[in-house]
Simulated assay, not measured.
Amino acid sequence: MALYLRILLLALLHLTGGLKLFVHSPQKALLGSDVLLHCNFSVTRPPVDLKFLAILWKYQENQILRYDSKDLYHQPRVSFNEQDARNGIASISLSNVTIKDGGMYKCFVIYSPDSKDEVVNLDILVPPMIQIPSKRVHKFEKKTLLCSVIGFHPPDIDITWFRDGEVLVDSIFSKKQRNDDGTYSVNSSVTIMPDHNYKNQTFSCRVQHEALREPLEENFQLLYEGQTRSRILVIIVIIGVSVFLVLLVFLTWFFKTPRCRKSWSKGNQFIPLFYFCLLSARRAR
């Protein structure tokens, strides 16, 4: 009787295998890349007997893979190596991941009559881009510098302003906007009063995000429009005043000169004023 119970116990241990499941979660993948969702299992008495094994994967309660000794089913962009199952590997590969692929996956391993399941969370990373819409300023006029950070995922992000390496602490953040493609955008701004001290200084918008291996930074210098426009305006005014004074002097001389005034009163053709005067002077000779 004792020998019979011992044999029965050994048979049960072989069937159940003392199943254990190991996963790596959360996992992260860049948009458009391929990712391996890790799920490994072990049994007490290897090797794995495929007759008792079944593997299932679900994404948000939708089955994306099913494997047993008789059949293999998987959705597009999902792949599974059947040979790995003999070595206790139930991992699957997702190709060309999108933002919609992010979320909760569940790995089920059945080693009859035992079963285990574990959750694997996948985060899709999309690196941000920086845009500085305007760098033009007017001297002694307040200017709000804007740093637009677009197209990133997940939404957590850090933006810092610098002026010649020193942190500008009065920056303001707008509310994050979710884009149609699932990414996010946000604006950061800082208000300054441009003066001669800012002319050669470098402003920087630095972004830190988990999709970046190192911070992303956009450096720029202010473009002073006020000085150029003022100089152009001064030149225009000087030219205008000069032309006016020359014309005034000429007209004063013209109408005070009897010959010019007389030729003007008798002129019946469309001839410039100075030509009337010159023609009259020649005739007088």
Rank of each mutant, 00 (worst) to 15 (best):
I236E: 11
V207E: 05
V149K: 08
K256H: 08
V234C: 12
L9N: 11
V43T: 15
W264M: 12
K70Y: 07
M193E: 07
C39P: 04
I172T: 09
A281N: 06
P215F: 00
E166A: 10
G102D: 13
Q27W: 06
A54Q: 08
N179Y: 05
L5T: 11
R259Q: 07
K20D: 12
S189G: 00
I55T: 03
Y73G: 08
S230D: 08
G18P: 05
G240H: 06
G102Q: 14
M193L: 13
P128Q: 01
H14D: 14
Q75A: 15
I7A: 14
Q63L: 07
P194A: 02
V237Y: 11
G182S: 11
K135G: 07
K143A: 14
Y59N: 01
S185R: 05
I172V: 13
V126H: 01
D164P: 08
H14R: 15
V241I: 15
F140P: 00
A2W: 09
I239V: 15
M104K: 15
N62L: 09
R259I: 15
D114K: 02
K139Q: 14
V246G: 14
W161A: 07
A85N: 06
G18N: 10
G151K: 08
P47G: 06
N200C: 02
L15V: 07
S42N: 14
A54R: 13
I110G: 02
E141V: 15
S265I: 05
R285H: 13
K70F: 08
G102M: 10
S69T: 08
F220R: 02
C260N: 01
F255P: 03
K175Q: 09
V97E: 05
R6Q: 14
L273P: 03
P154E: 07
R6P: 00
F162H: 07
L122K: 03
C205W: 05
Q221K: 14
H38E: 13
H138V: 13
I232G: 01
L216Y: 03
Q201C: 02
Q201Y: 02
T202N: 10
T191N: 01
L222N: 03
G182F: 10
N87C: 02
F108W: 14
A284M: 11
L273E: 03
E210L: 05
S189F: 01
A29Q: 03
H138I: 11
A211W: 00
S25C: 07
D156S: 13
K20I: 06
Y105C: 11
C39S: 09
L125F: 10
S93W: 04
S93L: 10
F276S: 12
L8C: 11
F52A: 11
P26S: 08
S185L: 02
G103N: 13
Y73A: 10
A29I: 02
D170G: 06
W161F: 08
S25F: 04
V78M: 04
L9K: 12
P258G: 01
